[in-house]
């Protein structure tokens, strides 16, 4: 079984407050795991916030219940892992999964490209109305 050195999470409504709360959890995680190099903290924090923002901005509820965001971040001996989930959410549209950088004038559409540059692997899972992006970064 994989050893978990530090873990932080957040679950709540998919809104602006969630973004700030998740960022606060990430800061606390790095305090808990102070051995994680600054470059890894910076890149992983950016990737997790981009993924969470993607949910807050784009996730649509599948039924009457609002979308809930759920983030679980673990520090393991040689990797960082984040599971960023949208509960009660529709399957994302193909254009929300676009990972190429847009042209210089564009004011949006860089989030997924950025995530892919910042982490080692990005995996998407969908199960029972939950979309989950699993981000890993080897450290």
């Amino acid at each position: 079984m994989t050893e978990v050195i530090a873990r932080r999470g957040y679950r709540g409504p998919s809104d602006d407050d969630a973004i700030e709360a998740i960022h606060t959890e990430l800061d606390a995680l790095w305090d808990d795991a102070s051995f994680v190099p600054e470059m890894d903290r910076m890149t992983f924090t950016t990737a997790v916030i981009e993924s969470a923002a993607n949910i807050v901005q784009h996730a649509q509820p599948v039924g009457e219940k609002p979308v809930e965001i759920d983030v679980d971040i673990t520090v393991q001996p040689t990797r960082l892992v984040a599971r960023v989930s949208a509960h009660n959410a529709r399957e994302p549209f193909a254009e929300d999964m676009q990972a190429d950088l847009p042209d210089e004038e564009a004011e949006s559409g860089r989030g997924l490209a950025l995530i892919e540059m910042l982490v080692t692997t990005v995996t998407f899972e969908r199960q029972d109305g939950t979309n989950t992006w699993i981000l890993t970064r080897e450290t």
Binding site: H23, T45, I49, E50, A53, Q57, A106, S108, R110, G111
Partner: peptide, 16 residues
């Protein structure tokens, strides 16, 4: 101390 792609998008909009 932090900027994401939304923040970057806003800067580009402000530049324009």
């Amino acid at each position: 101390d932090f900027m994401d792609s939304s923040g970057l998008g806003a800067l580009i909009g402000c530049l324009k």
